[in-house]
Amino acid sequence: MNAAISLNGLSKVYAGAAEPALRGVSLAIAPGEIYGFLGPNGAGKSTCIRTLMGFIRPTAGKASILGLDIVKDSVAIKRRVGYLAGEVALYQDMTGRQLMDYLSALQPLKSANCLRRLVEDFQAEMNRPVRELSKGNRQKLGIIQAFAHQPEVLILDEPTGGLDPLMQEVFYDLVATASGDGASVFFSSHNLSEVQRVCRRIGFIKNGRLVAEHPVNRQEAGAKTARQRFIVSFDGPAPYFQIKNLPGVKVSRQNSGDLTIEVVGELAPLLKLLGQCRVKRLTSREQDIESEFLNLYQEES
């Protein structure tokens, strides 16, 4: 099956820049696949997306969307693509309704019902000028305009910024539904938990390079061996060195005398040892998924 989005050695060097913003990125996204594109700020996510959208021209390499060349067939591609910018910019003096009318005049909708449903689902404020809307409400309009014409490919640059948790859920459902209907989704984020939740495959980008790609179930499998953290108070001297010698364990002593213990892998040896000590208090601190991502990222680089 042909890839819905295909990048082959895509590179971009901005005029006057010392370093390339993109360095030979190659990847392929299948029809109906939700692909997460992860990386820290400045890694090249937005450059990659803006190149795909034809806003900037690649310096080298090729890319296609739905079999169409991103440079030569940019207009034809946009008939079939929905795009949400990283920083949603809307006309401040227009209401949501005026904005959708304008954009629909430039790109006719397949069905007015789709727009109506999106407005209902997101409880979007359509009758107030954009300048009076909160960041979250502006983001909702950005999402609606990207999905309203029922595109075959969605390119979304950090789409949930400013959305409250309830609306994030609505958005995740929307992406899942679009994927179920056959749309491919290229989803950029720097939030691992979000990408894990939504995407089926994740690509990691750093310094303009695609440094790794993982299916999400591999990520989930990885979670079984994820780092877990405990803070332990002892009634008496803490068995610092005994704990330190356990496999897969890192330990540090806090000012209070408590120990912070990080375990990768089996917990049984640690629990067995603690069972022999006079433990006053044991607090489990779930490792922040963001720092998990950063750890993986450092390892990959």
Partner: peptide, 14 residues
Amino acid sequence: RSGTLELLLARPLP
């Protein structure tokens, strides 16, 4: 400057 140009260029408009 405001970024709305991308909103237009994301449409099938040469």
